[in-house]
Design a protein around this nucleic acid. Structure first.
Lengths: 200, 200
DNA sequence: TGATAAATAGCACGATCGTTCGTTCTTTTC
DNA sequence: GAAAAGAACGAACGATCGTGCTATTTATCA
């Protein structure tokens, strides 16, 4: 489930492949990721890349997992060093903003959500599981903010998590279409209004 | 720009093809739409379908246009019969909810937004133009609600339009991944909170 | 009804897709 | 240094992709 820290050659090149695959999937989505173009990007043969995963679907699942881990490491992990409650919540959102700017051309996780929401299979399940897990983390952080007295006692954590997520979707959407700066301005003001509306 | 109401055979079958293409694109996105599978779905030969558009890109543009027209006809047009201001705004959102339920497996316009936000070309331009146009309509309806005194005089139309759009993105996102009913419950409550926060 | 034009089918092309298989190169182990 | 194991390559497979070209069917009109 978690990345093995093995230092073998196999694991190293696999990581390299995943790096390139992740970058490619950021632009063309997981469905647009082909083994041929990936191999050319890495500088390996198709079969050499293929041998590391066994099938295209396994490759896609690996990219999805890698994306999820990077997201958690970039957005959630640094925020856990901040004090519980609203500060941590705001740190999460701030890191999420940076994550959004970094992948202006699209986040693998978000594009996967719209690519696989109507289908079935392992990829769909993995997307749903990751999204549910992240939503759960959000709810946890919100609950702590309520416990700390930063948010109203009758705060509906799931609803607020929905609202936070929606604003981030708006940021990504507008950022990709109309430019990140304008989208960020709107999102920042929307978040200030959101915090105020739930504040104790 | 607008659909010709010609009754010729060519236009009729073209419309039939677009119907099937739209349905297919709802599930697999515009990038996942192939002429071969479309022809099989319609019951025609590949070249027969191809002749109606001249290229795959023209087909995609036509599907995108058709999607935009249907969206406007379903979401905006009926709402224009409602009185200006908040009633019309709420009608837009209500119709938008129905639109979201109808295409549980994904809306072509939304999936196109994430498919083409990082690229360039006619498809990207068409998506941006459509999204900008729709956002403009939203702002117009918001401005009327301000003029009618339904919303605060200092309402930032663009910001509110962003917030409305974000909530609808959240509805589509959660609806596709976690089920439409739960997503709708969250979105409805979020919208009530949103209206109240801007009300005069 | 016969001539003309439009619409569709059929076929083939080069390219790319995911995948398999056997070979070659590189690394490790004794 | 020889032998065994591992990793990457290269070629080929059937399938599908978008796109031309040429027949053949179908509709239109005198």
């Amino acid at each position: 489930m978690s990345t093995p820290i093995t230092t073998g050659k196999r694991a190293a090149t696999r990581e390299t492949i995943l790096d390139h695959a992740y970058a490619l999937a950021c632009n063309g989505g997981l469905e647009g990721l082909s083994i041929g173009s990936l191999a050319a990007d890495v500088g390996m043969s198709k079969s050499g890349v293929f041998a590391h995963f066994g099938s295209r679907e396994e490759l896609q699942l690996a990219v999805l997992d890698a994306g999820g881990q990077r997201f958690m490491a970039t957005v959630l992990a640094p925020a856990l060093k901040r004090p519980r409650g609203l500060p941590r919540l705001r740190a999460i959102v701030a890191n999420w903003f940076d994550w959004g700017r970094q992948f202006q051309s699209g986040c693998v996780l978000l594009s996967s959500a719209s690519e696989y929401d109507g289908r079935s299979g392992p990829l769909h399940d993995s997307v749903v599981a990751q999204m549910a897990g992240w939503r759960h983390e959000l709810c946890k952080a919100i609950g702590q903010a309520v416990d700390e007295g930063h948010l109203r006692a009758d705060t509906d954590a799931e609803l607020l998590a929905f609202e936070i997520y929606a604003l981030m979707l708006g940021l990504h959407h507008d950022g990709g279409l109309f430019g990140f700066d304008q989208a960020k301005r709107h999102a920042e003001r929307a978040f200030e209004r959101l915090w105020r509306s739930w504040q104790a």
